[in-house]
Simulated assay, not measured.
Amino acid sequence: MEIQAVIWDMDGTLLDTEPCYMEAEGSIVKRCVGGDIAEVTHALLGKTENDSANIVINHFKLPISKEEYLKERYINLMRLLPNAQVLPGVWELVNEFELRGIRQGVATSSPKHLLELKRNAHPDLFNRFQTVVCGDDVKNGKPDPEIFLLTAQNLDVAPENCLVFEDAPAGLIGAKRAGMKAVGILNPHVNKSLYEECIPDALFTSWTEFSLDRLNANISK
């Protein structure tokens, strides 16, 4: 199998945004009921904005509407997300793939208004991608494969020739359902067994550990 395109997830994969989300959502939970957002962090990874809101509100039985929750969350994220940094190893891999002639795109569950906060903070990075598909562009969120298939279509590359980079089990499942190869970066808030159940092609603690040549060799065995 020849890797002709790489599809990146964004939050927790390209950018270290999880601390931003934990603070933005955690402050609402703490203010309303005094709970700890870490109780549901594992369930929020890779989910759409609406699905995440439903999980948090239902789990903690928040005394506010989904609209109120999302409005306060967005206000918090407007302040926090511009400070999110690119994860270690990302720039090196983006440059390597470009030199190898591998097309690159982004498939993120984030809605457009949150995507733009991150894109505006890192224009040099996002300008390197041939397509960026967000949660507003599809009907079904991860683990449905729709967002990965649309990204591959935009890149004009067959799914079997795509490699997905993800941090969420839901994203890894969606990538495999799309018929793609998929590698994951471990999230400390998620039990490793949940990643292993997704049957990824490789798991890493940092993208600095990734080697395309080594992955290709393992896939060919």
Rank of each mutant, 00 (worst) to 15 (best):
P63M: 09
K71A: 09
A84E: 01
E92S: 13
E67V: 13
S65P: 11
V90F: 11
S110D: 01
S65T: 15
F97E: 12
E72V: 05
I75Q: 06
L115S: 03
I75D: 06
L114V: 00
R79C: 01
T108W: 02
V90C: 11
G105Q: 04
P111T: 12
R100V: 08
R103N: 06
L81F: 00
L114P: 05
G89V: 08
M78Y: 00
Q85V: 11
R73Y: 05
V90K: 09
F97A: 14
K71G: 03
N83Q: 05
L114R: 06
V86D: 06
Y74P: 06
I102D: 10
Y74G: 05
V86W: 04
E72W: 08
G89S: 12
H113S: 12
I102W: 10
T108Y: 00
E92C: 10
L77M: 12
S65V: 13
S109E: 01
Y69E: 02
E98H: 15
G105N: 02
E72Y: 01
G101S: 05
P111E: 11
W91M: 15
R103Q: 08
S65R: 14
P82V: 02
Q85N: 09
T108E: 04
L87A: 07
L70F: 03
E72P: 03
L80W: 02
R79Q: 09
E67R: 14
P82I: 04
K112Q: 13
P82E: 02
I64M: 14
K112V: 12
L114D: 04
S65F: 11
L70E: 08
R103M: 05
R100F: 08
Y69D: 02
L93A: 13
S65G: 13
E72F: 01
G105K: 03
I102A: 11
R73N: 01
E68I: 07
Y74M: 07
